[in-house]
Design a protein around this nucleic acid. Structure first.
Lengths: 131, 131
DNA sequence: CGGGATCCCTGGAGATACTG
DNA sequence: CAGTATCTCCAGGGATCCCG
């Protein structure tokens, strides 16, 4: 609503395509969401397991990202009232479906990775020459 | 390399899946890239046309995003040396292929949009009750 | 028309320390 | 073990003005 809006919802009144893709990206964006989703798609995974698996993530961001994914119904959080506590996260069917489409992107990325790197190097060479 | 790295390349040594998806997201992320890609996929489009079509984008961000997409070989930029100048952008085949996968995400988003909104409302009600 | 250059602000993310 | 709470920093993005 305010012009100081980093969220992309401002485009929602645009083409529906933009709107929807943007929605996906919004919840899957952020440095860590995808990594977590991938781990949680393999099966139930504990907080500390994620923390170690993800490599570089801070406790804070792990928590925040988990909460957001849970909020959107992409992760199910199960608390075992034991001592010490045990909490497991697992991807919901909805998240697993999303995962499939993400794998589509993965394929694209892998196929074009080299070409893109080359294009980028080319561009930088040309523009670097100008400047 | 530095810890002050917002880029997700730090995960590159992780599972290849994470790595690749992240790569895609990195270049398609940002508030405007997708909108531009969609417009440019329909056919050649001029700078000012984009500016009006995208709704809310600033000149600065339009330029920046266009440059990045061009750099990655996702857009082709054609300058007609007329007066006044005329510049057209069009999606490359590579971008069109990406576009297909983005449409997969679109479908997912549209199918789950309602459920996600509901899940979110639910979550907020529960958590709001606690706090 | 199609940009560049500059200044500013915000929100995402890191570091660190504490708790049930 | 599984988080919270605070502080801080920086890069993405908005606003504005200038230029060939």
């Amino acid at each position: 609503m305010s012009p100081r809006n980093t969220d992309v919802s401002a485009q929602v009144d645009e083409l529906p395509a933009v709107c929807s893709v943007i929605e996906v990206l919004n919840r899957v964006s952020g440095k860590w969401a995808i990594g977590i989703l991938i781990e949680a798609t393999r099966g139930p995974v504990r907080f500390t397991e994620l923390e170690r698996a993800i490599n570089g993530i801070s406790r804070r961001m792990l928590t925040l990202t988990l909460r957001n994914l849970e909020r959107d119904g992409l992760l199910e959080r199960t608390v075992y009232p034991t001592v010490p506590p045990k909490v497991e996260y697992e991807a919901t069917p909805r998240a697993r479906e999303l995962y499939e489409y993400l794998m589509g992107l993965t394929g694209w990325a892998e196929r074009h990775r080299g070409a893109i790197a080359a294009a980028r190097a080319d561009y930088d060479r040309r523009e670097g020459a100008v400047a």
